[in-house]
Nucleic acid binder design. Structure first.
Lengths: 353, 353
DNA sequence: TTGTACGCGTTATCAA
DNA sequence: TTGATAACGCGTACAA
């Protein structure tokens, strides 16, 4: 109703009439096909300008089979997160460098192709998709794959049998190093863990690293100390409050990522706890602000912007029909600052619990 | 080339054949028109499932004139910025609450309808657009307006004569209050200002507030103290380095926004300056992290998430053909923390310059 | 309740 | 170098 109420749409036909040529010629001018005389080009461009003609992307997508939209898309979980911002920055910059636009779709719940309903970002408005995390189910990936639509996976592996390029980080060893630092250098033993969102790939492997580290140090795994932070500030806050309420004995918390770690510290401080004197908190990702947080965060560095760029690069390979890497893993590195409390060891004011 | 190489696309026709009905019936099922028997619905849905049919949004957009995509779009400057994240969060959550998806397009340069080239987000993939800041020129807005496409402006006013709803904040008085705090309560007089990006609406009015405050306090305006931070970390860092190099006498810096303020503080600290002891820095926006920055930032609070929600609300009014507010202005509030240095006044260790 | 047939705006094929 | 015309996949009169 709304869309076509106003001045009716200007089409190639209108432009053609105005310029005294055929629609085919207008199309040729629009697509910069060379077989058209400069004089005609000028006439058509004048008509385009006078009429305020704008190409209809839907009609274009429908008509041509080999067609470039000039856009790539990324589908990701909610966006209000320093880590995701950094990732997006890397993706967007590299895409722009290559003369592509980035379209972003952040979905809170599951995004899936079901009952014939397409994704909001698809082959009609993008030339390829970067799919982040777990928001897209296997059925959807399979559909995309079968249609040979360019897709790169970020922070997750493809479903069995689909060779979709995948860019991810090494979580397990990074986490193990982090937890062992907590145990060996900071003197913590009651270490709690906040998982990411359910089914999250990174979270799974961080949990493995956490368990391995404890086991290697002969510390029993206590399920009471395993909660959920969901890489999310509110959820992390809730988890802290639950633990506080239960009055559990906790030396340190690995919050799963920096977002949750900062939220956890804030919640702890609001409850009158000192970090790291009363309880240590560490994160994962090394967000830009983590260094300037108070206290500065001990965390695991991840080259997030580079990961974003790499994903885009792989996607362009796919779009251009070039060779791709099936798997591009990135290593991580421990960053020791103050929130783990190791600088307090041998300090008389320091007391565990 | 790529798009149609694989298994050829499944269409309504295929589904119709498989289900033994006509394309019209399939379409009716897809669009949940009621005039179709339950038995047929089931048959069609089975066929959709078996064939893995997915609706072609381009064809759909092209075909019907009154058509809902279920998406709204937002066009904004680059994304890696705590303030924008917060805004997006508000927008995305409210959109999702109303069963809409949010599509985001972040453009570094100018995005314009020119030479018949459409915006990547347009009437074919969205039902309406929130346009942020200065990235879209008047010609493009006029085109959208004439076509009666739902558009809400964020942080900017519409071009003369177009009554496009606009959601913005009160910049001038907020800034004046901030600067007068710097002068009257913190004892600063040599106060530098970092402008936002060229042509930015908010920056313009913050500059007005800055000048008004100085003038009201009989402090001359020194063009040497007026630089550019562009609401951007790198640019702010560069500006600090320029000022440092010139060896200017500066008591305090109003960085334009919190992003620039934090970057400025980091640059200052790296140069061996203490904030606020050697030089004070204040921002604007009250980003979530500003409170936890070291030192905690004195800034001006802006209800960013609510602003995002309000813009979406206005857009939905437009989409639904309801009444809208031409202008929704939001007030701001001074938040005094430590980076302004007022807690140091009367402290013997404190010395200006 | 269901089917037929046309039109949406563009590109591409084929002739001129 | 140009023009006429047939697709592309879907919604929707209109007819049955």
């Amino acid at each position: 109703m709304i869309k076509n109420n106003g001045r009716s749409r200007v089409t190639v036909g209108d432009v053609a009439k105005q310029a005294g040529v055929s629609t085919a010629t207008v199309s040729r001018v629009l697509n910069k096909t060379n077989n058209v005389s400069p004089k005609t080009v000028a006439r058509v461009q004048k008509a385009i300008d006078e009429l305020g003609y704008v190409l209809d992307t839907a009609a274009q997508a429908l008509s041509s089979s080999s067609n470039r939209t000039g856009n790539i898309g990324i589908i990701m979980p909610v966006i209000n997160n320093s880590f995701l911002s950094t990732l997006l920055e890397g993706v967007n910059q590299y895409a722009n460098t290559c003369s592509y636009n980035l379209l972003t779709f952040a979905t809170i719940g599951q995004a899936s192709i079901q009952d014939g309903v397409p994704l909001p970002l698809n082959e009609n408005n993008t030339d390829g998709l970067i799919i982040f995390a777990d928001k897209i189910d296997d059925k959807t990936l399979t559909h995309l794959y079968q249609r040979q639509f360019p897709v790169v996976l970020l922070y997750r592996l493809p479903p069995q049998g689909l060779d979709i390029p995948s860019v991810l980080i090494e979580n397990k060893n990074g986490t193990r190093t982090l937890i062992e630092h907590l145990i060996k250098n900071c003197g913590h033993r009651r270490i709690a863990f906040m998982a990411g969102p359910a089914g999250n790939y990174d979270s799974y492997w961080r949990e493995q690293g956490y368990c391995e580290a404890l086991t290697a140090c002969d510390i029993p795994i206590d399920s009471q100390l395993m909660g959920v932070g969901a890489f999310h500030d509110w959820r992390a806050k809730e988890q802290i409050e639950e633990w506080l309420e239960k009055g559990l004995d906790i030396d340190a918390i690995f919050a799963g990522d920096d977002t949750a770690a900062m939220a956890a510290i804030i919640a702890l401080q609001q409850a009158g706890k000192r970090v790291p004197e009363d309880i240590a908190v560490v994160g994962f990702n090394n967000d830009i602000i983590s260094k300037y947080f108070n206290p500065p965060l001990t965390t695991v560095h991840v080259p997030t912007e580079e990961i974003g760029r790499t994903a885009v690069k792989q996607l362009f390979h796919l779009i251009n029909g070039e060779q791709t890497e099936a798997l591009t893993p990135f290593n991580t590195e421990l960053v020791v600052r103050q929130s783990c409390g190791c600088h307090l060891v041998n300090n008389p004011r320091w007391h565990p619990n």
